[in-house]
């Protein structure tokens, strides 16, 4: 019995190790690569042979990389705040108020998240130019609504629907307006779901590439993925693997830290709302 249990334990931990190695290895390899330069890059190394910070220096000392990080932070944060604000009010209406066509509306919101990015690119580009926000962060903030909003509305709606009726009834009896009900009654209860959806929206906005490339025309307004996509070698055909890997490590670390801090909340938030059928 104990032998069998030991065996099961070993098998279990072996599985854990396999999962972790499989997930982490590419990132680890990116770190290894980010420390090598020149011809060393073209050799397969399993362990970092040298610690050459040159790639990091060249990325961070590069013209606008730090600026790009700030752009990304600003755009992603604003997108999240904007999406959450619109989603909290909308999902209150969708979850707590009965009206005709509610199910249809939810399906339509889901339909928006089916739009292929490429299908709306040209139309969005026209809109961005019409509003005069081309090459400003607002172009990205506006266009990111298309993929952050349906998701946040969706998760928050399911979350709110499952909250008991009683908590609202008391407030209604006291004559509270819907706005008061949202801010005073629901918001405090919504935190786990807000953190989850907020983080998901943040990662989505942080990682987006196509819109960010299309709607900017100067180095100072670019976001991080675009900046990485545009890192260049010393000539037309040369790909700077070292700096690309260094930049990737730099932009991924904050996300990993965020995930580490919020990982409990993410699961809690999803448990509470997101995936309930």
């Amino acid at each position: 019995m104990t032998a069998q249990k030991l065996l099961t334990n070993i098998a279990f931990y072996a599985l854990v190790v396999v999962i972790v190695v499989f997930s982490v290895f590419p990132f680890y390899y990116a770190i290894v690569t980010s420390f090598s330069t020149g011809t060393e890059l073209f050799k397969v190394n399993y362990w970092p042979k040298v610690f050459d910070w040159g790639n990091y220096e060249s990325v961070l000392g590069g013209r606008n990389f730090v600026r790009s990080i700030w752009n990304s932070v600003f755009i992603a944060t604003t997108t999240v705040v904007f999406a959450l604000f619109l989603a909290v009010t909308a999902s209150y209406a969708l979850a707590r108020v009965r009206f005709r066509g509610r199910g249809l509306l939810l399906m339509m919101i889901l339909a928006v998240s089916m739009f292929p990015q490429i299908a709306v690119l040209a139309g969005l580009f026209e809109l961005v130019r019409f509003l005069g926000i081309f090459n400003t962060p607002y172009a990205m903030i506006m266009s990111y609504v298309i993929f952050t909003l349906p998701f946040t509305v969706w998760v928050l709606t399911t979350f709110m629907r499952d909250l008991p009726v009683e908590i609202e009834e008391a407030a209604i009896v006291d004559g509270a307006t819907p706005w008061i009900i949202i801010t005073k009654v629901f918001l405090p209860l919504l935190w786990p779901a807000l953190v989850t959806t907020g983080l998901l929206a943040f990662i989505g906005a942080w990682n987006e590439f196509l819109f960010a490339l299309t709607f900017t025309s100067s180095e100072t307004t670019r976001t991080v993925p675009v900046a990485i996509g545009l890192l260049s070698g010393a000539s037309q055909q040369e790909i700077p693997w070292g700096p690309i890997m260094a930049a990737s490590v730099i932009v991924t670390v904050p996300l990993i830290i965020l995930v580490l801090i919020f990982q409990r909340k993410i699961v809690a938030g999803l448990t509470a709302g997101g995936v309930k059928g």
Partner: peptide
Amino acid sequence: RNWPYAYGLGNGDDSA
């Protein structure tokens, strides 16, 4: 077969 850029790089210090 390559473009002129490979010439300078091929003569770099770390090139075999």
